[in-house]
Design a binder for these strands. Sequence first.
DNA 1: AACCGATGCCTGTCTGAACAAGTAAATATG
DNA 2: CATATTTACTTGTTCAGACAGGCATCGGTT
Lengths: 176, 176
Amino acid sequence: MTQSTPATGKEPAGTGQSASVPVPAAAGGGPISHAIFRLARLHRMFAGQLLRRIGLHPGQELVMMHLWELGPQRQTDLVRLLDSDAATMTRTVQRLEQAGFVRRRPSPTDKRASLIEPTAASHALRREVEQSWSQLEDLVAAGLTADERTTALHTLERLEQNLVQAAADPTCAAGS
Amino acid sequence: MTQSTPATGKEPAGTGQSASVPVPAAAGGGPISHAIFRLARLHRMFAGQLLRRIGLHPGQELVMMHLWELGPQRQTDLVRLLDSDAATMTRTVQRLEQAGFVRRRPSPTDKRASLIEPTAASHALRREVEQSWSQLEDLVAAGLTADERTTALHTLERLEQNLVQAAADPTCAAGS
DNA sequence: AACCGATGCCTGTCTGAACAAGTAAATATG
DNA sequence: CATATTTACTTGTTCAGACAGGCATCGGTT
């Protein structure tokens, strides 16, 4: 019971939450956290359903987008670009390779590394992927004016920046 | 939609993104989606690190919070409360049981169901879990006034509502 | 009573994500 | 040149989440 009631006097149960958004008091201690959690979940679910149609799993499309745009990359580069994990990238690339969307070529300058490049077959997906992203964006930002979208984006980035800073801050308990 | 028109758009620069937020043009087609994605990722990571200290994995704490608050529940109830999956719940409960945080008791009225209840040992975690949630909330909303927090919460809920509505909307391509 | 659909739960499979550990090559250092 | 150290990648393990399928029970109907 940190602050179950925001100072602004918002009725907890009265926030017009639809039935599909169960907000038991369990989450009262972190309303924003809980909202992020739910939004992220829904968002990911939608992304998954859009991607499923084009034969990709969530996460894979990001790899492909970077490859399409930047050309062949080493796995390390992809890891850095996506802020992902080397182990995850290894397996994701393996699955993309198995699915025929990427190919591996040994790096000419480094025997440890291999260059990942999109296959011709993959380019057929590019449009659909970009379209899906636009579609998702329209879904999530439906009914928002350009101004409101900008504001929403700022809000999200503000929250993100808080976490980014906290990660870099030594006082943070979650510091790596 | 179609505002993206990323076909030739080499116009990344724009939004003055900070250095720690790699926003290659790949995400230009869905800035809000991308922001949600990144925020969620960071947020989850922090939650994971906070929870790790108290021996729980992300997701498990939600189950426990509901059990602490509502008392013994059937798995189906937990699934509905968390808007989760029956299969996932089965395994999550198994792990919580194995970890000694919950116990299973056959339902007196339904031979199919069992009641999941928190163990005495689990109650020792309750405070820490709630504290972690507060801590996470403070991290993610650091530097925001009460007003700004309310606004941020509204923004998140607005986006969520858009997705919820889209899910219910027959015109939605992502309909089940 | 017999049937049948709905419900509660479980298992298998596949995916991403994270952590730990290990291999091989490149690079720096002695 | 020989030895560390760093880098690139792989593998193993564990977890959540989603989907498909299966089994037992419950309920309502016939």
